[in-house]
Computed example of a mutant assay.
Amino acid sequence: MRWVKWILPTILAINGAVMLLAPAWWYPRVPGVIETGPLNEHFVRDIGAAYLACALAMGWAVKDPARGLGVAVASATFLTLHAAIHLITPFCGTTLPWPLLLRDFPGVFLPAIISLLIVRSCRRRAMRAEARPC
Rank of each mutant, 00 (worst) to 15 (best):
R45L: 01
P38H: 08
F78G: 01
I85R: 08
P38D: 07
D64M: 05
R123D: 11
A57H: 04
T89N: 10
M58R: 03
R124E: 14
L100T: 02
G37L: 00
F43P: 11
L110I: 04
L21R: 06
R103S: 10
R128H: 14
L39N: 02
V44C: 06
L101T: 04
P65I: 06
W60I: 10
A83Q: 01
V108H: 02
G68T: 07
A17S: 11
H82A: 02
L52A: 14
V62F: 02
I34S: 14
T10L: 15
G59Q: 01
L21D: 04
L12A: 04
R128I: 06
P9Y: 14
G107V: 06
P97C: 06
T80N: 08
C134Q: 14
I11V: 15
W3G: 06
L102Q: 13
P99S: 09
P111C: 04
C134P: 15
F105G: 03
W98K: 06
W60C: 13
I14A: 14
A13R: 02
A50S: 15
G107Q: 08
A66N: 11
M58L: 08
A50E: 07
A24F: 05
V62G: 10
V44H: 00
K63I: 03
P65S: 13
G32D: 07
A61G: 12
A129M: 13
E41Q: 12
G59Y: 04
N40S: 12
A13Q: 02
V119G: 03
R125N: 11
